[in-house]
Design a protein around this nucleic acid. Structure first.
Lengths: 251, 251
DNA sequence: CAACTACTATCACAATGTGATAAATGGAGA
DNA sequence: TCTCCATTTATCACATTGTGATAGTAGTTG
């Protein structure tokens, strides 16, 4: 991790900064931002250009090369993510003897990108299916990592249907639950989506701390003991971290 | 162009190959394909990974990093292309004293991504607007650079409405016209879309010879002499080449 | 279990990236 | 048109990095 950065990483850091700033390049500001001397920045800029990653629009503006973008058109983050995550879910499902999911947030709903079923445990979810976020374990985790503004917008967006008699539907109560979820570092759905469905979920981070999605363990019966739940969480977090490191170092 | 490739270029060449081959990496085949020894390839592979461009799916399979893809989600090839091309069109419009366009092929129709109007020359087209390909200058150029199969599919897809009395509508005749267009290297619309609209167009290539789009010069009156037309073509081609080199070396 | 291929590790050498400095180019405004 | 300022290119001595041959490990397939 702390091994010497290759020239490649440095140039890609510049690319990342450019993309994040809508192509605006101010040499002195960028220099302090990235901790790289200006002369080196221009060399990196040229490297990015000759590699076909960026092209110059006007003075001080560099955009991702459209030809490069076209090459990536066949790939969607969702499709790739689900392919990457699937083997991890399979392994986890065997280890925990439960069904496991990987989900992301999309339009305030949870979308399941991958599912590994554990035989004997029928779970009604399906891949690419959507679920309410406020009551599912994965949803709680993802909502709890939103910015304050985003979360506020979600909380006031209601209404929140009562799916079971355990479903939390009061906005204030939901907000507190999300706060607890964030503090604990994992989300719990204690029969709040479906009477016979109990889940716990933990976040999957990208290497720079952004939340990419969450993985969960779902069972038709409640976990027997606190110890058992703790055990599952450890395994979930282990796998989450494996996924993170598979995703690598980029943003 | 032939100056020594930076390590960056070589690694990005590997990335390009991976993307083009759906992530499949066979070290010996890739080695001969790129002319790079295997040990170096694996170093590049690791560089791409640690820079966050790719991640490992399974043995021998490397996919674009979904986190990286997400960062690029705000950029579409079309939007970037039109921004890149616009200043060139403006300049060309002044030089030729005609309206100029940049268009690409989309679902067998020409889509105009950018337009630079020349005052006094009213042209009915608008940016993001679509036009039939078989009778417009830009369309002819783009169709003429399709693969044989694609072109055949287009020719048989008909029907081809007769927009003016000069419009070529017979499939066989269209095919011959496309063949002529390809051989000449430029396309002509001699009032075939609209009675008072005369255009010539030339292709814009990416640095590896792929056709990205085409630029055209449109006028409400026919060019006076062959010499004048030749002159316009020279300027069109010059600008097309400028755009190509702005797009850079990738793919 | 055998054969194969993906993948990692090491090392001496050379190529390439580095950053300070200086100079040129181009665009916005007076 | 001229001035000013930020962007951009050019140069150079130095040291960090990349290179590729070789050898060895590990995971997969039959």
């Amino acid at each position: 991790m702390t091994r010497s950065m290759s020239s490649f990483d440095k140039a890609m850091a510049l690319f990342g900064a450019l993309v994040a700033q809508d192509g605006v390049f101010e040499s002195d500001a960028m220099s302090v931002q990235l901790g790289v001397p200006e002369s080196t920045l221009y060399r990196h800029l040229n490297a990015l250009h000759s590699a076909g990653l960026i092209c110059r629009s006007k003075r001080g503006r560099y955009l991702p090369n459209p030809v490069f973008l076209m090459k990536l058109e066949g790939y969607t983050p969702h499709a790739v993510l689900s392919e990457i995550v699937r083997p991890f879910l399979d392994q986890l499902s065997v280890a925990l003897e439960t069904t496991t999911h990987f989900g992301i947030l999309e339009n305030d709903m949870v979308t399941y990108l991958a599912k590994a079923a554990f035989e004997g445990e029928e779970v009604f979810t399906r891949e690419k299916g959507q679920l309410e976020a406020y009551c599912s374990a994965i949803g709680k985790v993802l909502l709890s990592h939103m910015t304050i503004d985003e979360r506020q917008a979600y909380i006031t967006s209601g209404p929140f249907p009562k799916l079971t008699d355990k479903t939390i539907t009061d906005p204030g109560e939901i907000e507190r639950e999300l706060h607890r979820t964030r503090n604990k570092g994992f989300g719990v759905d204690d029969g709040e989506v479906h009477n016979a469905l109990y889940c716990i979920a933990v976040p999957v981070f990208s290497s720079r701390g952004m939340v990419v999605g969450a993985i969960s363990s779902s069972s038709s019966q409640r976990w027997a003991s606190p110890k058992e739940q703790r055990d599952r969480l450890i395994q979930l977090n282990g796998v989450a971290q494996s996924i993170s490191s598979t995703l690598g170092a980029g943003a």
